[in-house]
């Protein structure tokens, strides 16, 4: 799932300040599951902005709507924009982008798109994947070094590891985790393999991709 989180309120208030009628658009898929873009958050943010606006006396009007998924044109077609002069999207980057593609008014992001992650528990996620375009999880026992190693290196650990912890101090060393998991799976010898540098160009060659033409760009 794509994990998102709300931008600082000050930033949002500043971004919507030039507009008078703003529609907040939530997304009932990843953003809702991230507890940042569902109906609850849309209603709360609408009310927060109304309060801020009444405090400032700007007279702006805020309304809310939620789409099942902002990243699908068919859902966006259902959106009633009426006489709004801006949209505030509570979706991930893809949602903001596709909304902006389909309307003739400015679309402002209310969220920051963080990573592709997994749920750890209530309101808690872990980054698992950076969408690099050439997956190595098969060799790294399911632990992504691109995402979970601070340096994103393919042959670790580096000299900064200390007692299993990364020198940044905020995470475990991904390469130590990979080593331990491989050992557990009796695949320790694979740790000796040196990985070739990744071809990041696969991701940047063409941002548009069509399942019917699959393989064409590889």
């Amino acid at each position: 799932m794509i994990v998102v989180r709300q931008k600082p309120l000050k930033e949002i208030v500043k971004a919507v300040a030039p507009y008078r009628r703003i529609l907040l658009v939530g997304c009932n898929t990843c953003a809702a599951v991230s507890l940042a873009g569902g109906e609850l958050e849309v209603d709360t943010l609408v009310q927060t902005l109304r309060l801020a606006s009444s405090q400032e006396g700007t007279g702006s009007v805020f309304e809310g709507a939620v789409l099942q998924r902002q990243c699908e044109p068919e859902f966006i077609e259902k959106l009633e924009i009426d006489d709004c002069d801006a949209l505030l999207s509570l979706g991930c980057g893809a949602g903001v982008a596709l909304l902006a593609d389909n309307v003739d008014i400015p679309v402002i992001p209310a969220l920051d798109t963080m990573f592709i992650g997994s749920a750890k528990g209530l309101a808690s996620w872990r980054a698992e994947c950076s969408a690099c375009g050439s997956c190595v999880l098969g060799e790294t026992a399911g632990i992504c070094p691109i995402t979970r190693c601070a340096k994103g290196i393919l042959n670790g650990p580096c000299g900064g590891v200390n007692d299993g912890m990364c020198e940044l101090g905020d995470r475990e060393c991904a390469w130590v985790l990979i080593h331990d998991r491989l050992a557990k799976l009796h695949r320790e010898d694979e740790f000796e393999t040196t990985h070739e540098p990744k071809d990041y160009s696969v991701k940047t060659k063409n941002p548009e991709w069509d399942a019917h033409a699959r393989g064409g760009d590889r």
């Binding site: 109906e39 958050e41 209530l122």
Partner: peptide, 15 residues
């Protein structure tokens, strides 16, 4: 109170 989609309601209580 936590449901992000506001899909859960309680009998006898509403916003």
């Amino acid at each position: 109170s936590q449901c992000p989609a506001q899909a859960i309601t309680l009998e006898g209580h509403s916003e």
